[in-house]
Design a protein around this nucleic acid. Structure first.
Lengths: 365, 365
DNA sequence: GGAACGATGGGATACGGTTTCCGCACCGGC
DNA sequence: GCCGGTGCGGAAACCGTATCCCATCGTTCC
């Protein structure tokens, strides 16, 4: 019992090492560990002791190869730093953990190239599903690109889940978990309108982004419903960050200073807008009202606390994972029930959270 | 060439399928794909065409088993939602991607049980390293626990990296990437003291957490250096969230209302504190000054913008990954240079970021 | 012109488990 | 006392890929 095979004991212990040391067969060790086969108490004790002594863990790769293995779900984010995305990731991760699944996170940095590379990487990993987070630029190629992803993954026994972006057109094997983006914006704008605001600076976000488009559309609809003319000159597109909020308000104060409220596409944009107003000596909400979108923690940390639209990000994550898990079980015994391309589409509700950043207009228009 | 082996074509294409269809051997396909062996142009074309036709990707598990495979680094976070941690994760992930490494993220939810489970899971995955993020509760068992992790991982050819917590004692094979926590707090407190503040409400964070302890200690040292008596009655421990900041300030305003500044353990805590002060009709910084710690984006989104301590979170992530990568290469040709337990310890600097939340005291003490 | 050699491609094996198929005891029943 | 059933452990066949070793073919050098 002095020196075993190698001196360095390099690498990890294998199941064979355990078997040998316990004086049993490899099969027995496997059975003790997976526990899906009757094993005598005596054998179990012997094996477990050696397992503890050697601090043995099974090789996940080998296990996956042989058919078993932990299901894994991949989360692809543009930017892990975004609070909204982080919450979705938390939802996915939590639900995954609950089921004993593993979760991988990758960031794409808005780069289609990198997105492709990551999807392929995940395909190599044999993940149960790839969850794509965040709004998308719906340019011409996008639909084809996603459809290709969806089919590729589907063919490999995996599945594509789109979270926070509109569903794909046509018969594509992808699941979409979405929220009622437009209605949220509609409700938010209505809130401002019913408070008496007529001239509203709108900062929807990046022009091509689906979420920005939806939010803008919802706002517009609200104006129509209220019979208030919607001035395109009060719309300023730009990135979802506080700098844009700041710059846009500064510019608007110069060009069209008669607005009495700001409808920001995001809480972060609202934060920037608020800074700019303050910098110009305007008070919020006394002089100008502000509303946001997302209801991330920041919204309630600002002063005044931000009235915003609550988006159930974390729940979206949970729902996404549940959808994948259900589908996976459904494919079980009684034949594959998943027909060719069933594009499941789940929509979650949003609602306005009223805080302290809105007041009836005061300034003369 | 009509119907191949199975009808459903279930699962993914294997390298054998490709070889067969291209009329070459499995070895050749492997060589074409990995590209580390001379291959004729003709063969390469034939193989690549089939690869594209079949949309084939190699099985990462099989590849890992056979010796190749992408190095993977696991990131273990308490709560993916925390902005600071997210930045570290971003740093790790970015650096990993740059090297073609893969990164996994798991959340522990502050549960030692779950932490153990995750470390084992990662060990199964054969990750190159496990990066543990965030402050730790340095209770008695902690050191033993981490030492065990470190040795386990080391024995399996992996490595433990501690980020944002103090290094382990003794000869433990773990790398620590830390920042100068105490000095940051020292500088921050000095900033307040030199502005003239004498009665400072200190909200270090959770009592047992190493980061909170360090920050408190740094503050205390500053008081000593300035010859200002440090009143333990003005220290209030509690979680790193805005609710605690809010509640603590409210309570302090009732019990010891003579403080002129708040030294928060975190920007988020500072945000809560600010809310409470405002709710009580106190202006920031006119009536009470506030400083934070971390310099997350929130700090510059608050009004007034928060003076705080910048912690290079993202860089810490990058450094952590670099340390792992270097070590891995170092273990290469010329024998394992890593002696038994070289506890490498890297410390990054912090600095105060002066914004608008501090002013000389006004209120009478 | 023959032999040694470089450039390529193929067959076999290893990686570390899981799982199927078998065989060996040991048991009770007739 | 013999036979069939049952419970448990072992040997071996994969899982999909990388790589080692060998065979082959076309060159080039002597």
């Amino acid at each position: 019992m002095s020196q075993r095979k190698a001196i360095g004991d390099a690498g990890r212990a294998t199941i064979r090492d355990v078997a040998e040391r316990a004086g049993v067969s490899v099969a027995s060790v496997s059975r003790v560990l997976s526990g899906n086969y009757p094993v005598s108490e005596e054998l179990r004790r012997r094996v477990m002791k050696v397992v503890r002594d050697l601090d043995y863990v099974t090789n996940a790769h080998a296990r996956s190869l042989a058919g078993g293995g932990t299901p894994t779900v991949a989360i692809l984010i543009n930017n892990i730093t975004g609070a909204a995305f982080a919450h979705v990731a938390k939802g996915v991760e939590g639900a995954a953990t609950l089921r004993g699944w593993l979760s991988l996170v990758g960031t794409t940095g808005d780069d289609p190239e990198r997105e492709l590379a990551l999807v392929n990487l995940m395909r190599q990993q044999g993940v149960a599903a790839v969850v794509l987070l965040g709004g998308a630029y719906d340019f011409e190629e996008y639909q084809l690109r996603m459809a290709r992803f969806a089919r590729s993954l589907d063919a490999a026994g995996s599945h594509l889940v789109l979270v926070g972006r509109p569903p794909l057109e046509g018969d594509v094997p992808a699941t979409t978990v979405d929220y009622d983006n437009e209605s949220g914006a509609y409700a938010m704008a209505s809130h401002l309108l019913s408070a008496g605001h007529r001239r509203v600076l709108v900062l929807p976000g990046p022009a091509g982004l689906t979420t920005a488009q939806g939010r803008l559309k919802g706002a517009r609809r609200a104006f129509e419903a209220y019979g208030v003319p919607f001035d395109p000159g009060l719309v300023r597109h730009g990135p979802y960050d506080d700098e844009h909020g700041y710059a846009a308000v500064k510019a608007a104060l110069h060009d069209t200073p008669d607005f009495t409220a700001v409808l920001a596409g995001t809480d972060v944009v609202a934060a920037g807008a608020m800074q700019a107003l303050r910098a110009e000596g305007l008070r919020v909400p006394d002089d100008v009202s502000i509303v946001g979108y997302d209801d991330i923690p920041l919204a309630s940390q600002l002063t005044p606390q931000l009235t915003t639209v609550h988006v159930p990000y974390e729940e979206m994550g949970r729902v996404a994972l549940r959808a994948v898990a259900d589908r996976r079980e459904g494919t079980g015994p009684a034949g594959r029930r998943k027909g060719g391309g069933d594009g499941e589409h789940l929509v979650l509700g949003t609602h306005v959270v009223v805080r302290d950043s809105v007041r009836p207009p005061r300034r003369h228009t």
